[in-house]
């Protein structure tokens, strides 16, 4: 699969790809923040058969619907592709001192060099948690870093 990126001078960017079933779909990102989802015509693959305009908020919602469940899958593939990179799910156990703390409070990246790229909570993945993300008991943090760094995150989160 290849995603093609095209500049639209004065308007923004267009990304498009051809699906395995042979249909072309694309996204036009305007510099104003508006997004258009484009379905291309079956007979004339150069022409848009349907275009749906999304506000920034709607685009985020659609992205989350399409993207979130695939994050863990993508991570496992990443682990295979890049040698020297370790990924691990580290749980926040009930009673841990980190329950209620924010990601920023833990300063994990500064202390270990490893990054929290996602948090699994109640069967859902929260991608790219921000520094003000607050942990709950039962969260599973997806940590990416060197094997050493990931091990240190595990140790830090388990010991008070």
């Amino acid at each position: 699969m290849e995603v093609e990126e095209t500049r639209l001078p004065g308007i923004g960017l267009r990304h498009d790809l051809v699906t395995a079933s042979g249909r072309r779909i694309g996204v036009v990102s305007q510099s104003t923040g508006a997004r258009h989802v484009v379905l291309y015509d079956e007979v004339d693959p150069d022409a848009a058969a349907a275009t749906v305009e999304l506000t920034a908020e709607e685009a985020d919602a659609v992205a989350e619907l399409l993207g979130a469940p695939r994050i863990t899958e993508r991570l496992s593939r990443l682990r295979e592709q890049v040698s020297g990179l370790a990924t691990e799910g580290v749980p926040i156990l009930p009673g841990s001192p980190y329950v209620g703390a924010t990601l920023g409070d833990t300063a994990l990246r500064t202390r270990t060099g490893a990054s929290v790229v996602a948090v699994l909570r109640a069967g859902e993945a929260i991608a790219s948690p921000r520094p003000d993300f607050r942990f709950q008991a039962g969260d599973r943090l997806i940590v990416v870093g060197t094997a050493d760094g990931v091990a240190r995150v595990r140790d830090l989160l388990r010991s008070p």
Partner: peptide, 28 residues
């Protein structure tokens, strides 16, 4: 007329069309 052309392309929902970058390139 850049103004009229880009308005027409937007109104007809053709921003995503594959010939549109070529049109915009000529306008630029």
């Amino acid at each position: 007329s850049s103004g009229i052309v880009s308005k027409v392309l937007t109104d007809l929902g053709r921003l995503g069309n594959r010939e549109t970058p070529a049109v915009l390139g000529v306008l630029v």
